[in-house]
Amino acid sequence: MKIIELSHGGGGAETQQLIQQLFYKYFGNEILLKAEDAAVLSIEGQVAFTTDSFTVSPLFFKGGDIGKLAVVGTVNDLAMVGAEPLYLSCGFMIEEGLPFSSLKKIVQSMAKELLNCGAKIVCGDTKVVPRGAVDQLFINTSGIGQIKSLPNAMPSAHNLQVGDAIIVSRDIGRHGAVILAARESLNLQSDLESDCTVLWPAVKALIEAGIECHALRDATRGGLAALLNEWAETSQVCLEIEEGKIPLCEPVQGLCELLGFDAYDFANEGTFAISLPAEQVATALEVLQQFEFCVNAAEIGRVSDFQPGLVVLQTPWGSQRVLELPKGELLPRIC
């Protein structure tokens, strides 16, 4: 088949063909292949459950695609509560006319990420909708994970303690910068790649090293600014961040200079922050830096009771300002 047609979502022969040739072929595992109406699972202990929908455009970008995002995004949400990703569901909403080759590449990309993190897709759904009803392809994934953090030690946005240190796992803003640079109307070229990556191995290593992660969160839409503000608000603490310590790679800086943006507002898909006891920072950084996607992990600030609910940025020369939540759409500044 060359393109996906409405009949592929009809539930009949064409749907079966699509499922067999694509989804079962690349996602196949003993649960999925049972082909029941629902997947039957056995899990011990506490379970984490999350869902996310993915609508990124363009479908393919430097460093990934919508499929990779769909697996990574959900698996990372599980990792952020200290859960090992086990099972995913996957719903595709396909615009008729999508080239089969694109869908195949996306599915292959998902299969590769599943192998990376050890999770399995155990149930799914496929709909094909008329032209214009969705923008090429939307994917929803829900995920189930097994809590691996110690009892009473689950990371939570309610748990930041005054005196904690804040670590960020890598340079910020890559994913948002890549998607922005890909916006055709801006006519920008860059080798910058998205940071889209599975984070569970790093979180697992932190748990195994006995690091007390009071809070863990991956910075997604709204960037580091949204993440820090949500923490400050939820735990009613002040986050005092040293601007000069936040890792930033040159191409993201270049894009920010060109268009007048702040890297704090850009989305990420493989970057996370930790709030942890200050005395554990050195060990935590050592653990993180063994992973290629965390080599420039850094301590960026502290939790205090200075101005509860606010994120305060300190410059290297002693002045400060409040880091706000990003508002509205990201429009290039001309002034």
Binding site: L310, W317, E324
Partner: peptide, 23 residues
């Protein structure tokens, strides 16, 4: 409205001179 200067308690006010020496 947005950048309302965050007020520092006196004991933590870092004067330019102090931070220059520290730096």
């Amino acid at each position: 409205y947005r950048y309302a200067e965050v007020s520092l308690p006196k004991s933590r006010k870092s004067s330019v001179e102090k931070s220059a020496k520290l730096a």
